[in-house]
Design a protein around this nucleic acid. Structure first.
Length: 490
DNA sequence: AAAAAAT
């Protein structure tokens, strides 16, 4: 990081955007800015949002959006009121689940839950593919389906949940225990299948619900520590990522093949890019499906900004300047590479800042310790790779920094990762800030392509006018009050 | 050319 990359040596006059000296850029910011005076409209959107929260009894008064519902049985009408349930009481859930829902403070189902729960709980069980914005209650939806269906008189595994990372799997397992609190007396057991030295000696898994990462689950199945015999639900979170990734996709398919043919397959994600939908349909055939239009995917409560830096080193100095400027509840700084995470942590720590770092380079126990510190607020600034880009739900996160613009293996802008990263804030009706750093033509073009894809107009900040940066950031951070939503589990 | 995930 200290030694600037070749691209960042490219000189740029102060106050100029990377757009200005770029003739063949696919995006014309000037034209885009004209059709929508970005600051004005964003300020207005923010103001409107604030009004609706103050008037509403909860933070999830989202405007109506178009949901595409496709049912496996084409004879059925997707708009049948039976498939849109406004009250948890109408779902014939176990009494213990209704109690837990109420204790956890849920009043009514979120938009995705309204539509997803009746389809998930339908009998006989059918496959399901569900898409919904980040922070809208996907996890609670699939956990309710699982807890409703498991037979507590047996300790045989009956539901398997797969997630792409250790942290997400553990979060889901904990959520399952919380939602199943009232079922614990009746024998509910939840097992975390993430890499753990103690699994070597573990006897056969005795738990109705197994939540884990694909490698460990596969390993347990292979070693006959996990019985596939009674498994009737396979749920995959972040399913587009899981099935797309080299390695994890194969493991997911192998796990599915080890299960009974009539296992209910449930897939969830905020993103399902077109090319992935094709093999999603193969993995979960004849599924009831809920999808969204791309323009519906961005969470309106997340204010999107970008900081125009002169070069790579200025990203670091700006970051430090920024943290000297104000205190933020909690924030995640996303970088591309593990070494960058370690490097920023080293430099900021040397400058007296309290920061932590989490990447796949850490060992399991260390990862758990660091993440727990971040979750309980002991560590407020966390530098991470894409390991934490998806699913992680830490309510105190009011800012996400894209220190490096997300890109795919091919070096192309990674739309999905951008959306998942910024979705770590602004959860359940709260507001949040997403600040992306650009420092050369490639990073600028990448960010602009991403914003164009999601049809958002980010606000530009320039290091050459630091007073403006300061004013804007203080303004948006001040506005990012936390508003508590109803559905508190994603 | 990365990260993640199994040993």
């Amino acid at each position: 990081m200290a030694d600037a990359k070749p691209t960042s040596a490219e000189p740029k006059p102060a106050g100029k955007s990377w757009a200005d000296d770029d003739d063949d850029t696919p995006i014309n910011t000037t034209a885009d800015a004209k059709k929508d005076t970005s600051e004005g409209s964003l300020a207005k959107a923010q103001a409107d949002g604030a009004t609706s929260w103050m008037n509403g009894s909860h933070g999830l008064d989202e405007p109506e959006f178009d949901v595409n519902v496709k049912l496996a049985d084409l004879q059925e009408d997707p708009n049948n009121p039976l498939f849109s349930v406004k009250h948890f009481e109408d779902l014939n859930l176990k009494e213990e689940l209704l109690q837990a829902i109420s204790t956890m403070g849920f009043r009514k189902p979120s938009k995705i839950q309204e539509r997803a729960l009746p389809l998930l709980l339908k009998n006989p069980p059918q496959n399901f593919v569900g898409q919904s914005q980040s922070g809208t209650g996907k996890t609670a939806a699939f956990l309710l389906n699982i807890l409703q269906r498991v037979n507590l008189d047996s300790l045989n595994p009956q539901a398997i949940v797969l997630a792409p990372t250790r942290e997400l799997a553990r979060q889901i397992a904990n959520g399952c225990s919380v939602m199943g609190t009232m079922l614990q007396d009746k024998g509910l057991k939840v097992f975390q299948a993430v890499p753990d030295p103690s699994h070597r000696s573990t006897d056969a898994v005795e738990a109705q619900v197994v939540v884990g990462t694909p490698g460990t689950v596969m390993d347990l199945l292979r070693r006959k520590k996990l019985s596939a015999r009674d498994v009737k639900i396979l749920t995959i979170d972040e399913a587009d990522n899981m099935l797309d990734l080299q390695g994890m996709g194969d493991q997911c398919r192998r796990i599915k093949n080890a299960l009974s043919k009539d296992t209910q397959i449930v897939l969830f994600s905020a993103t399902f890019p077109q090319q992935v939908l094709d093999f999603v349909a193969v993995f979960a055939p004849k599924a009831n499906t809920i999808t969204l239009q791309v323009e519906e995917l961005t969470v309106k409560g997340i204010k999107q900004l970008y900081l125009d830096c002169q070069n790579d080193e200025e990203k670091y100095t700006s970051l430090v300047k920024f943290y000297n400027l104000m205190t933020i509840a909690s924030s995640i700084i996303f970088v591309k590479e593990r070494v960058t995470a370690a490097e920023i942590e080293r430099r900021m720590t040397a400058e007296g800042h309290t920061v932590a770092q989490l990447t796949g380079a850490l060992e399991g126990a260390e990862r758990d310790a660091v993440f727990e510190k971040f979750r309980n607020g002991t560590a407020k600034v966390l530098i991470a790779t894409n390991v934490l880009s998806r699913g992680i739900d830490v309510r105190t996160v009011t800012m996400v920094v894209n220190y490096d613009i997300p890109e795919t293996v091919d070096g192309l802008p990674d739309f999905e990762t951008y959306l998942h990263r910024i979705g770590r804030t602004g959860r359940f009706g709260r507001t949040g800030v997403a600040l992306s750093f650009v420092h050369d033509r490639k990073s600028w073009q990448g960010l602009m392509a991403i914003c164009k894809h999601f049809q958002v107009e980010p606000t530009r900040l320039d290091t050459a006018d630091w007073e403006h940066v300061e004013r804007m950031l203080k303004g948006v951070m001040h506005n990012s009050r936390n508003v508590v939503g109803e559905i508190e589990m994603d």
